[in-house]
Simulated scan of single mutants.
Amino acid sequence: MDVLVEIRHLFFWYGQRLVLEDINFDIKRGDFLAILGPNGSGKTTLLKCILGLLKPQKGEIKLFGVPVEEFSEKWRLGYVPQRAIALVDPVFPLSVEEVVGFGLLPKKKFPRFLARADKDAILKALKQVEMENYLHQRISKLSGGQQQRVFIARALVSRPEILILDEPTTGIDAATQERFYDLLAEFNQKGLTIVIVTHDIGIVNKHVKQVACLNRRLVYHGTHEEFCSSPRLQQIIGEHHLVIHRH
């Protein structure tokens, strides 16, 4: 199985505060990986290091075999940031089509104009998330769940090999969350590698295949089944609730 992301002996500090300590694991093609941990455990920091948005003080990350600082094919990673919905300006009249089109810019050279083929790619991405009928709607007029689907389409439009999501269901009701995760599972079944950061560990009981649990250090990395049956489970999750049976 192809290793898409290699993380070796990763350390990261914010000033004097050690946030990530000696992190080592791989993300393989076809994984559906949930990165879990309490607030402040380093989950978002780890993602930003993988994406090249933060530079670790020690250690190495490789994307598709290339050191992250040398990796130029950013379109191969789709990213939905934490609180993406909060980025929507209710005053600025961006359409759904324009928001998704931003996902094509990393592939383009200046001047960055959208061609007919790009319009087709935008429509295809919206169809994948069942939002094609909202192409010309202002994104600020959509519900939170609809907006989140648009941001997924923006991440998918460049046809990435890895989809990375950071707390993607914050502020979304439970029923919409369930449909959202079912949609991610469909993408994974079609071959897309998915990495999702969350502190709501209830997500692991249905779709994910692997779990990485962070609390500054990597406390656990392995399959969902092993995680649920681990005798150290209570130590790993603390006071969080976890339904360990899939349904």
Rank of each mutant, 00 (worst) to 15 (best):
A115F: 08
L126P: 06
L105C: 03
P111V: 05
A121M: 15
I122S: 04
I139F: 11
N133L: 14
N133G: 14
K124C: 09
V100D: 01
V100T: 04
D118S: 08
E132H: 03
R116F: 08
V100I: 07
L105D: 07
K108W: 04
F102C: 02
R112P: 10
I122V: 02
E132Q: 04
P111K: 08
K108E: 06
Q137Y: 13
L104M: 10
L123N: 11
K124R: 14
G101D: 00
K124S: 13
K119C: 01
V100N: 00
D120E: 15
L105W: 05
K108N: 09
D118H: 11
D120N: 15
L104W: 06
R138E: 14
V129Q: 02
K108D: 09
V100E: 03
D120K: 14
S140Q: 06
K108G: 06
P106I: 01
P106W: 02
H136V: 06
E132D: 09
A125E: 07
K124E: 15
I122K: 03
K107F: 11
L135M: 06
I139E: 08
F113V: 03
F110S: 10
F102Q: 03
D118R: 11
R116K: 15
I139R: 06
H136W: 15
H136D: 14
G101F: 00
K109P: 07
L135C: 06
S140Y: 03
F113H: 09
R116E: 14
G101K: 00
V129R: 02
A125S: 11
A115E: 11
R116Y: 10
V129F: 05
R116I: 14
M131H: 11
D118M: 07
K127Y: 10
S140G: 15
K127A: 09
N133V: 14
R138K: 15
D118P: 12
V129D: 00
G103W: 00
K107H: 13
P106M: 07
I122G: 05
G101L: 00
P111G: 12
K127Q: 13
E130M: 05
K109E: 07
K108Q: 08
Q128M: 04
K127C: 13
Q128R: 05
A121D: 14
N133I: 12
L123H: 11
K107W: 11
P106E: 04
L104K: 09
Q128D: 01
E130H: 11
R138I: 15
L123M: 13
A125C: 10
K108H: 09
K109M: 02
N133Q: 15
R112H: 01
I139A: 05
G103T: 01
P106L: 01
N133M: 08
D120R: 14
Y134M: 07
A125P: 13
R138D: 12
Y134K: 04
E132C: 00
K107G: 08
D120V: 11
A117L: 03
L123Q: 09
K124W: 12
